[in-house]
């Protein structure tokens, strides 16, 4: 995985003060469910004020990692700290709050009652009217939660998470099931909120979401961090292209040796070359070989994940 090492060891951004405590510090986090190794040793430090996207395909271990970060589950090995504390203690102090994917609401309460109840559990909270306005649900306070749309329920979860005015807000795939408009409105509310300096960590499997809203993208797959860098760095990795050409009797070794080439595959008379530098592949094919019918297509995120994150445990086996 040569492509990941370039960004994985990115030097940390300048620390604002020597005493700054990381918002999140995960060290060697490991978690299995039976024989499924959901998280296989995640190290991650999030500095206060960062907006971090946890990007990965479904089943990458994002939710499992977030659960351990919130103190909802216990790692098999390794530690999770939030502002230097045990996650559960951080929750009790209102330092960390979360917007979960589904559930977590009582259908028989109204939106405002849900916020009143949640607020009553904390020692200090923001005014309910303020969080409703910030989450964009000021007009549905008297609506029963069971009658709210999926998007409204998600904004209610967001409003609940804002109540303790947390230092760190965690969102686990918060826009799943929302339409395009709902998704945009939701992110706009989050973005406005983050401008006040709150640390935000969100999980998503949409590259566009990560790209548009995060300062930093942590790419996870198979329970590991496979890349970590700025949005443009990670985007460059996952947005490679595939060059396809008709080329009988291709010299695979020569093709493999081209700069940026990740894989070469032969299908009949065609050759498919996945590369981060499609230009030089195309140049080589057209000038040095008899290739014709050249096609260059950009890879989807899923393809990029597959090439980047091939399961090391299944190497050597046919998959």
């Amino acid at each position: 995985m040569t492509s990941t090492t370039q960004t994985q060891n990115r030097p940390p951004a300048p620390v604002r003060g020597a005493t700054t405590i990381p918002a999140v510090e995960l060290a060697g986090l490991t978690k299995s469910f039976g024989t499924v190794r959901a998280v296989r040793g995640i190290d991650l430090t999030v500095r206060p004020g960062e907006i971090v996207a946890f990007l990965g395909p479904n089943g990458a271990g994002k939710t499992t990692t977030i659960d351990m970060m919130l103190g909802l589950s216990q790692p098999d090995r390794g530690t999770a700290r939030v502002y230097g504390m045990d996650p559960q203690a951080a929750v009790r102090h209102g330092l960390i709050s979360a917007v979960m994917q589904t559930g977590g609401l009582l259908k028989d309460l109204t939106a405002r009652e849900t916020l009143e109840l949640t607020a009553s559990l904390f020692s200090d909270t923001k005014p309910i009217s303020e969080v409703m306005t910030r989450a964009g649900i000021a007009d549905i306070g008297d609506r029963r939660v069971g009658k709210c749309s999926g998007g409204q329920q998600q904004r209610l979860r967001f409003a609940m998470a804002l109540l303790p005015d947390p230092e760190l807000l965690v969102l686990d795939e918060p826009t799943t099931g929302m339409d395009v408009t709902g998704r945009r409105d939701f992110w706009q509310a989050i973005r406005q909120d983050a401008e006040q300096g709150r640390t935000v960590l969100f999980a998503t499997h949409y590259l566009e979401e990560a790209d548009a809203y995060a300062d930093r993208i942590v790419l996870v797959a198979h329970g590991r961090v496979v890349a970590d860098g700025t949005a443009s760095e990670v985007k460059a990795i996952v947005s490679g292209r595939t060059v396809r050409a008709t080329l009988p009797d291709a010299d695979l070794v020569a093709l493999q040796a081209l700069p940026g080439v990740e894989s070469v595959e032969v299908r009949g008379d065609s050759v498919l070359i996945a590369s981060r530098d499609s230009d030089s592949v195309a140049r080589h094919l057209l000038t040095n070989t008899g290739a014709r019918d050249l096609e260059i297509t950009s890879r989807g995120l899923e393809d990029a994940f597959i090439s980047l994150t091939a399961d090391p445990d299944s190497e050597g086996t046919q998959s």
Partner: peptide, 16 residues
Amino acid sequence: VERSQGWSRQLRLTPL
């Protein structure tokens, strides 16, 4: 009922 609706889990994200 509250466990099946995920409310108990939500409450674990509060000081209760």
